[in-house]
Simulated scan of single mutants.
Amino acid sequence: MTFSNLIGRGAFALAAAATMAIAPMGAEAKDWRGWNIHVEDYPVSHGMEAFMAEVEEKTGGEIKGKVFHAGVLGSQPDAIEQLRLGALDFAVFSLGPMGQAVPATNVVSLPFIFKSIPQMYELMDGAGGAALGEALEEKGIVALGYYDAGARSFYNSIQPINTPADVEGMKIRVMNNDLFVDMVNNLGGNGTPMAFAEVYQSIKNNTVDGAENNPPSYESTSHFEVAQFYSLTQHLIIPECLCMSKKAFDALTPEQQEIVKTAGKNSTDLQRKLWGEREAASMEIIKAGGVQVNEIADKSAFQAAMGPVYDGYLAANSDMTDLVNLFRNAD
């Protein structure tokens, strides 16, 4: 066999090997992985499954994927970075902890930035969501829709909260964010960051007097057993984002991108419906469990107490002034 024949055979073998190596990668690029912190039977989880099912159906199986629930693929900060790098294809993230990666999203963590859940829908489906979408895209994330995570309200083991004066002296567990600590402190309480898993026992043994969360979380964790006063302050309404890796999105054809965007909207509509149903069911459970639930018709005193929180935030983040005003001044 001549030297040239050996070279020819070698080149052919290398080309064949390269083809074999590349082919699975091409297939894998259409085999999506989705990250989700919630358990499988949860409104967010059902919304994500519906999203992936619609994408697979409408693309004729060209794009398939799996949603990995319960945070099995890592923590939210890790998952955000994986999504930006393209190691994950899609996910649902709370915009609360998103601020470290995308500072503009901290705006929705400001107390009373939304006046109600319907107003949140309107803003996030319109100018507010578009503005945050631009900030997310700059960091390699495409927002496909904004899910409902309910409104967070105070619960405690002492008394109903009807005015800021009722919070005075209370030690209230909050998420680890200075905004939330300042929120409680400006109501006269003591904002106490603490791991969520520690809350039940901490209320039971009087390490803290209460906490704050949405009805499904309050109910499903059995916190209502040890803190039987639930006051609907609805001080925080923090949406969750159905997000996609920009790298994965940009690799799609225009037709596939439209399918994905439509599936994202349909998924968002479904999740919001399921969330409303789950929230209503949770409220029935806690009331049957003896919880004293009180509405707060006029929240203006609570809102007025947040002035220093906004002032401090804007002093440290003056570049966010226009964005804060976009949300804060909306009807």
Score class of each variant (00 low, 15 high):
57 E>P: 03
185 N>A: 05
24 P>T: 09
89 D>C: 01
225 E>A: 05
316 A>K: 15
86 G>L: 00
100 Q>A: 13
124 M>S: 06
283 M>D: 08
234 Q>I: 01
78 D>E: 12
329 N>L: 03
42 Y>N: 07
17 A>R: 11
95 L>M: 09
116 S>H: 13
290 G>A: 10
26 G>T: 14
144 L>M: 11
229 F>G: 01
112 F>D: 09
278 R>E: 12
90 F>H: 06
78 D>Y: 05
228 Q>Y: 04
279 E>I: 14
123 L>R: 03
103 P>W: 02
47 G>A: 13
280 A>N: 13
329 N>S: 05
41 D>N: 12
119 Q>H: 14
74 G>L: 09
172 I>S: 02
72 V>L: 08
87 A>L: 08
275 W>C: 05
325 N>H: 14
260 V>N: 11
153 S>A: 13
290 G>R: 11
272 R>A: 04
164 P>M: 06
221 T>G: 00
308 P>I: 14
43 P>M: 04
96 G>T: 06
247 K>Y: 08
12 F>V: 14
210 G>C: 03
240 E>L: 13
283 M>H: 05
254 P>L: 05
116 S>W: 11
83 L>D: 06
127 A>P: 08
157 S>R: 15
148 D>P: 05
78 D>A: 14
283 M>Q: 07
284 E>D: 15
214 N>M: 00
64 K>T: 15
297 A>L: 15
223 H>F: 02
257 Q>W: 03
94 S>Q: 15
114 F>H: 03
73 L>A: 01
116 S>E: 10
164 P>L: 06
315 A>M: 02
316 A>L: 11
262 T>I: 06
129 G>M: 01
217 S>V: 10
186 N>R: 04
85 L>S: 02
207 T>K: 08
19 T>E: 07
69 H>D: 12
195 A>Q: 13
248 A>E: 12
315 A>C: 04
295 E>C: 08
209 D>K: 00
213 N>R: 01
247 K>N: 11
313 Y>L: 04
247 K>A: 12
62 E>Y: 00
182 D>R: 11
284 E>N: 14
124 M>R: 02
36 N>E: 07
106 N>S: 07
159 Q>A: 15
223 H>L: 04
244 M>F: 09
165 A>H: 09
151 A>G: 03
191 G>D: 05
170 M>H: 04
25 M>H: 07
267 S>N: 07
21 A>F: 14
106 N>K: 07
3 F>T: 07
261 K>N: 04
46 H>R: 11
228 Q>W: 09
121 Y>E: 07
149 A>Q: 10
233 T>Q: 09
56 E>T: 12
194 M>I: 11
145 G>F: 12
35 W>D: 03
89 D>N: 13
201 Q>F: 12
50 A>V: 05
294 N>I: 13
193 P>N: 05
202 S>M: 03
271 Q>A: 03
255 E>D: 13
225 E>Y: 06
245 S>Q: 01
117 I>M: 09
180 F>A: 06
57 E>M: 07
72 V>W: 10
193 P>Y: 06
199 V>M: 00
191 G>R: 05
114 F>S: 00
139 K>G: 12
244 M>S: 14
111 P>W: 01
8 G>C: 10
81 E>G: 05
85 L>K: 09
208 V>N: 01
81 E>A: 12
14 L>N: 10
283 M>P: 00
183 M>F: 14
169 G>T: 04
263 A>F: 14
4 S>M: 13
